[in-house]
Design a binder for these strands. Structure first.
Lengths: 368, 368
DNA sequence: CTGAAAGCGCTTACAG
DNA sequence: CTGAAAGCGCTTACAG
């Protein structure tokens, strides 16, 4: 980093500042930049199209020398198989559809990009469907399915079951990431959220808390349901009163913020709260502070996910880390498998939760 | 919202808690769920394949009655043209490639999802390339290009110029969103960042600030450069000393946080800071607070974007709103146009910045 | 090990 | 207005 650099002189601004700038393309790029096809390559090599084609399939049987020749020449003249022609024959598309919702939660953009990057390494391209308005999801999924993705991955979407069924009817297997549909035949990758909830209960009870609260998010989400279940059951098992539950309704800052108001109106104020995830927890904390309470002095707060923001000093959120690495790598492995065997039996992978990261939103031991 | 709901009894946990669950698919979905093709539809209707095909193209000439018949029957038996076969002929793919980087900035996930949703309405599917590791971008873009997208949209990526050139060589036009490459023939949609910088300078000077600082982000980004330019030039024009500049290096929380340290070591402390964007500003604020300074008492801070987080009470960031709506709708319109006319001349749209939203990180008027 | 031929599912001149 | 035919760029039995 360097300082003390003074801005360039003002005259530059004019050239940059035109409000709408139009210019004609200088180099009219060769209008018919024809792609090189197998035929071209075959002619170039003096071989048949069949042989050339076979050279690209390791399992196909070609003279090693021939293969080398083809591959070399292909790279030299820039031949790349047309994926459309390919999938017309092979019925594989190398496309994985990614259905995303809940983009408001910083957890997902990261998952999305990493998943995309990892799949690209396997030669699979990601086709994206975003499910903001739930009504349009179905259309979007239809459009996606017309591309016959080898696989679709559903990222935490509260998907209408119709869409899911459409996938299976279209013959595209579906992996649920970080959310389970409950269907018997489903493929899923998720954290063990029950165990996560249990850990939080233990932690809070060990700290000496007695009046627990769970701030629930989207009621249809398995993550929400399981965290709540683990938390509440363990609290009971530890001899503490059954935690209260506030239904905040969604995995969002706003939901958490609003839940704080609801909490403040409770007849008996809880002394510790487990929120369905980090973004809800952060909203809750800000809501609670806005109302004049202190965290953790008046109330301890725990989240779930350990998104980057949780570590920022302004939040310093105590939270359960979600094992994203593992979830991701298992998903990719799973994707590879399902892409080649779409009819594999349903299988759900539950990854143990990461550690509970103790930060500033819960009291120190022995201060209660 | 409702409270006081007590968790369900514990026995449920066992069934949910198996660590790895395997089950065979019950309904072996008809292994060869053959798609219905034009041929099927034609036979069903007793027409020729040609006629049937034509019915789907409004510009093709078919008897109106025939068309109705075809369309009706198609929907009835669930016919959908195979896009791969289609694009083999038409050379259009209805695919737009979306190259994304900087996913750390909450501004982008939203842009991404909305863009995706809007394009889907036009029948275009989004193929995603994420550019985290810059080295792998080129490969990913290659893979993308093999799908011959009708268009690629580059979202704020610090793209190697090679990748961009590859797009144009592959014949896919490229729109730069919220970042300009400076190439003469480029298509771009961006906010007028110079004007934005000017507004901030005016605002801060009007407030009475005299020692200004700009916290720069990625030096290769046009947004960064232009905001800085507008800000610094206007400050000078207003008779204030040339703003200092700290090169934070990237559009990230961490960069802003680190810049705060650098700032603290300056011989003369600035009294107001304009950060390259909101996420940098938020990092800067937290950094500055960690060092024991108060915002805005010791230093005023202004950001750029007005991401949702900027409005959270913990930040209450004064910032320039980015006109996302307009940028998005222009991009979509632009996309439609370029998809049908890939050789349209380069054109860059500059949208005036949104208002400066005054919140809590800048002093009140007259307190200086 | 290699080549000629058929065919994937479409669209689009070309005749009628 | 409609149909028969060619062809997009590939892969894959089928012979040799």
């Amino acid at each position: 980093m360097e300082c003390d650099y003074v801005c360039a002189a003002p005259q530059l601004s004019k050239s940059l500042h035109r409000t709408e700038e139009r210019m004609t393309t200088l180099d009219q790029k060769s209008p018919s930049r024809r792609r090189v096809t197998v035929k071209d390559l075959a002619k170039d090599l003096g071989m048949s199209v069949s042989t050339v084609s076979r050279a690209f399939y390791p399992e196909a049987i070609v003279a090693p020398a021939t293969r080398t020749l083809v591959l070399e020449r292909a790279r030299a003249i820039g031949y790349k198989a047309n994926p459309y022609a390919q999938s017309l024959i092979t019925k594989r598309t190398q496309i994985v559809g990614l259905v995303v919702a809940d983009i408001t939660n910083p957890f997902y953009p990261e998952v999305m990009t990493r998943l995309t990057a990892d799949l690209q390494v396997l030669g699979m391209n990601v086709m994206l469907v975003s499910a903001n308005a739930t009504d349009k999801v179905d259309d979007a999924v239809q459009l996606l399915l017309s591309y016959q993705p080898d696989l679709v991955i559903i990222l935490a979407a509260a998907l209408s079951s119709r869409a899911v069924q459409e996938c299976s009817e279209a013959g595209s297997p579906c992996i649920f990431f970080n959310r389970l549909s409950g269907d018997a035949a489903e493929h899923g990758v998720t954290c063990d959220n029950i165990a996560g909830g249990i850990n939080v209960a233990d932690y809070l009870v060990d700290l000496g808390h007695k009046r627990l609260l769970y701030v629930a998010a989207f009621p249809g989400a398995s993550t929400n349901v399981e965290r709540q279940r683990g938390f509440c059951e363990r609290a009971l098992a530890r001899g503490v009163a059954a935690p209260l539950v506030i239904e905040a309704g969604s995995f969002s800052y706003e939901a958490g913020f609003a839940a704080a108001k609801t909490m403040a109106e409770l007849p008996e104020r809880p002394d510790a709260v487990f929120c369905a995830n980090d973004i809800v927890a952060i909203g809750f904390i800000e809501g609670v502070r806005t109302l004049g309470f202190s965290v953790p002095e008046d109330i301890s707060v725990v989240g779930f996910d350990d998104i980057a923001m949780a570590a920022w000093p302004s939040h310093a959120l105590t939270t359960v880390r979600q094992p994203v690495e593992e979830m991701l790598s298992i998903t990719v492995e799973f994707a590879r498998k399902l892409a080649s065997d779409p009819d594999a039996p349903g299988e759900v992978h539950r990854i143990p939760p990461g550690p509970l990261i103790e930060r500033g939103t819960t009291r120190r031991r022995g201060t209660l």
